[in-house]
Design a protein around this nucleic acid. Structure first.
Lengths: 369, 369
DNA sequence: TTGTACGCGTTATCAG
DNA sequence: CTGATAACGCGTACAA
């Protein structure tokens, strides 16, 4: 680490030119066996590791793709973070009472990350991640854009203006965003159609006509599409569609709970609550059951996403599953296509969703929760 | 994207030298206001984004840290991965019966990633991740090492030999590994002590003397330390300590289940099963309860890690919580220290654990599960 | 305050 | 098959 060896050092030790060293590393078959062995020995001997920066600079590609994520953990200022505490050798023991767990809060994003990484790995590329925390986001994303071959970003993570700026340097793929009039490739899921089918199920199979939609953030394109699907199903059934959701949360379980409590307090709980995502639905479920309402007997609750937590709630949540991991994979796939051919017009590729009927709509017998 | 602008283009448009452009970007205050404005305008106009490669090369630091993770998702060959399927516009509906969920399988790693990212972000650094999948691992890690300022790796992710090679170029911090006779900095948790306290609790508070340890992989340093803690508690209580765990799994819930079934079949279920991690414990719990054994009345089960899934099991799992996120944070913190001063001797920093008493050891009344 | 010129460690294009 | 040598895009002493 004191004196990091370079191609020159390797070349000298092996008694060849730097060009040959480079060849041994990149196209070993173009080099004579004996020469190759000498070079490889020198590499091992010196502890040589090629400089990625120099390599990227000369090759005009970095072999990495950038993943931009929104501030999903709520940490947004450096000052707000306590330093890590180390052990003093003692182990404390506490009686841990049950409480509400924000289980699966990061799951959506974790899955997207994983999918991105997997597909990148398949193509021998690395993934560099950047989270839009705090005020320095701008700087962070520019830095990222400068060091990768392409960028995958969740919708609404990077301000439009900056995204446009970045996109002049590297291709951009937007995840879960609406296909607006931009120049980017998009990956979406069947939000509207999924919610339409889900709603129709409640309408037709369960004969419910009194149902309301619990939404997410007003500026969420996902939420918007889901609400549209909900309304569409209502109209198709000859029912009036509301102009807006009965309430809006921020896609967190905590907000779902408070919405549930509010509806209870105001006596506005309908026969079925169709929620815009699982977290919200689970929160609503919490509020309902702790107020003594039976789900699904008194109220039907449905979600959207299919996070793991929806699988272990009581009752298990009927929801619309979307392939989160494939979202990341599809984005990278699209990015690589674009890298190969920058001429093709901006694409929008849609991933399928699947309606999972479980306990919270009443499709399963009580014993299977 | 057609013709990516460089400092030269910006300099020309702004009518200054490239040195000035560079200054505007790095030390804006050393440049006259008017000049700065002209340059910034040119930057915006051209859509200029500095090349990270060139920057890293010239500055001799990349501003990124690498995170090496084991093949936690079991994907190890490119061929084994089906391509992403896109939507055909139809939404399928399925009756989704309850089944065993591998909830939280990636949680440990997700948390470490998150912690790493947070701490890196605080210091304006990016994180590049690499997973040790398949046979190309070697290549991948070398590439990573060449493009980052330092590396954080989970123990046993990179073969010793290669790690030694890499470490000659960049500093390395090993997570959750044993402090062996290497030159790396290490971050560990109080595995042995945590397990000792947990075991003592079962021994003393619940008066159990008939207990067994269900281990993880034989080559896991974490598992090893935990088993030592277990034995230590037994001896302290005047009981004989076993030479080996009663069974070994691979830290997955599935293995935990089969171990549970095996013990049941062989009639070797003791009064308490102390497990080396939560997944294993949850699997054991599955096997026990589905065989009609009551936990904690008939058998006490405990875990280690404190993953979210341990919080929602029935009964909720008594376990030893370790701060997974802090593991990542501490690693980055240590790495940055080392970057600043390469002279200090290799350090080992230990993070505290906490024993969480919940339902599966019998510390909580039945109603709070 | 601004400009000149060199170096950073590779890759790639030619000759040989 | 191997060796010079010119980019690659930026940071930075050193000058002006």
């Amino acid at each position: 680490m004191q004196k990091v060896p370079t191609v020159y050092d390797v070349a000298e030790l092996a008694g060849v030119s730097i060009a040959t060293v480079s060849r041994v590393l990149r196209k070993p078959h173009e080099v004579a066996d004996a020469t190759r062995d000498r070079v490889n020995a020198a590499v091992l001997d010196l502890g040589y590791v090629p400089s990625g920066s120099a390599r990227s600079l000369a090759a005009r590609r970095s072999g990495a793709i950038g993943l931009c994520l929104p501030d999903f953990d709520g940490i947004d200022e450096v000052s707000g973070l306590a330093p890590v505490e180390f052990s003093d050798g003692r182990v404390s023991t506490v009686l841990d009472l049950p409480e509400d767990v924000e289980l699966g809060d990061h799951l959506y994003i974790s899955e997207v990350m994983l999918g991105t990484e997997i597909e990148a790995w398949q193509h021998g590329m690395a993934v560099t991640i950047a989270v839009a925390r705090g005020s320095r986001g701008s700087e962070i994303f520019d830095n990222l854009a400068g060091r990768v071959d392409g960028i995958v970003t969740l919708a609404r993570t990077i301000p439009d203006k900056q995204l446009a700026h970045i996109a002049r340097r590297v291709p951009v793929v937007v995840l879960a965003g609406p296909r607006s009039d931009d120049e980017y490739d998009h990956i979406t899921t069947d939000n509207a159609e999924g919610m339409r089918v889900m709603t129709s199920h409640v309408l037709e199979e369960h004969g419910v006509t009194d149902l309301a939609f619990v939404g997410g953030p007003a500026d969420s394109p996902d939420d918007d599409a889901r609400f549209r699907g909900f309304c569409q199903a209502l109209r198709a059934a000859g029912l009036p569609a509301p102009a807006t959701p009965v309430a809006r949360g921020d896609f967190t379980r905590a907000q779902g709970r408070s919405i549930g409590r509010r509806l209870l307090a105001e006596g506005r709980v309908p026969r079925a609550l169709v929620c815009s995502n699982d977290q919200t639905a689970l929160g609503v479920l919490d509020a309902l059951t702790s107020a003594g309402r039976r789900v699904p007997e008194d109220v039907i609750v449905t979600g959207f996403d299919g996070i793991d937590a929806s699988e272990v709630s009581r009752p298990r949540l009927t929801t619309v599953y979307q392939p989160m991991r494939d979202l990341g994979r599809a984005a990278v796939d699209t990015l690589l296509h674009r890298l190969r051919d920058s001429q093709i017009p901006p694409q929008t590729r849609t991933l399928p969703v699947k309606v999972l009927l479980r306990g919270s709509c009443g499709c399963l017998p009580p014993e299977s929760v």
